[in-house]
């Protein structure tokens, strides 16, 4: 589904990704772990097309197509979804209006009919139950005045609604207590299927107890320095990132 080759990217003057190779097949869940500053969020941003990152070398193929040549909205319409670490606030625009506009843009791209207000409402209600989202959040401005947990729930709600094919979860667990984490993970697991793939970025092993990955990669200084099964995450938690940095040296 996703084929990353020799990916180099920079933000401003700093080279952050220094040659990433990663292949994710349909239905697979890959986790990326690594210390702060290792390039995890840059990788997520490059995949969704954030303008502040510049790819200097390498390629990314998504279902055989050149992902890097696509505009952010075209990537979204093609099924790429990023759950953001810090979802922005947009004053004055209601969550409800935004989600409907987004869903209909993506449905249109898929060749499906747009949903009218009534149908949209019934779909949204059903998804809201999964993430236990309070009803009033729909009438409020996007993420404005939401608590940290509400913002993350809102991200997962959007994911459930848009039904993407490839999901990037950028530290979706950070700042969540254990109950909120369960709810969020439950929402994510709803979408697991043989057709969908996921890249789960996290600093902590804890999330991976709930969203169990097929493969775990460890990122350090812009490179994947180790890959393995889910037990790698436990090992990392136990020994700390210093272990990796030491191992990366040779």
């Amino acid at each position: 589904m996703l084929e990353i080759k020799n990916l180099h990217a920079r933000a401003g003057d700093a080279l952050i990704l220094k040659g990433i190779d990663l292949s994710i097949g349909a239905g697979e869940v890959h986790a990326i772990m690594g210390p702060n500053g290792s390039g995890k969020s840059t990788l997520a941003g490059v995949l969704s097309g954030r303008p502040s990152f510049e790819v200097t070398e390498g390629s990314v193929l998504y279902r055989g197509e050149d992902l890097l040549a696509m505009e952010p909205e075209d990537r979204a319409r093609a099924g790429i979804f990023q759950a953001f670490q810090y979802p922005v606030e947009i004053p004055g625009v209601t969550n409800n209006y935004f989600l409907k506009a987004s869903l209909n843009a993506i449905r249109t791209a898929r060749g499906e009919d747009e949903l009218d207000a009534m149908d949209f409402l019934s779909v949204v209600r059903e998804k809201m139950k999964i993430v236990e989202m309070p009803k009033d959040l729909m009438g409020r401005s996007i993420n404005e005045g939401f608590s940290g947990g509400e913002k993350k729930r809102n991200e997962v709600l959007q994911m459930l609604l848009l039904e993407p094919s490839f999901m990037v979860l950028d530290e979706t667990d950070s700042g969540l207590d254990i109950d909120a984490l369960r709810v969020v993970a439950n929402g994510v697991n709803h979408l697991r299927s043989p057709e969908r793939s996921m890249l789960v970025i996290t600093h902590y092993q804890r999330l991976l107890d709930y969203i169990v990955p097929d493969v775990v990669h460890v990122l350090s200084e812009g490179r994947i320095v180790r890959s393995g099964g889910k037990e790698l995450a436990l090992e990392l938690e136990e020994k700390g990132y210093g272990w990796i940095e030491g191992a990366a040296a040779p």
């Binding site: 303008p51 319409r77 947009i90 935004f98 987004s102």
Partner: peptide
């Protein structure tokens, strides 16, 4: 904000629609 525009685009809205929507919310 560029962040606001990018957020909307990541959810499949064109940049033009995103600007319209934000201006609309503003007014």
């Amino acid at each position: 904000g560029e962040d606001q525009l990018f957020y909307c685009r990541q959810r499949g809205l064109s940049e033009e629609d995103a600007i319209s929507m934000i201006v609309n919310g503003f007014c």
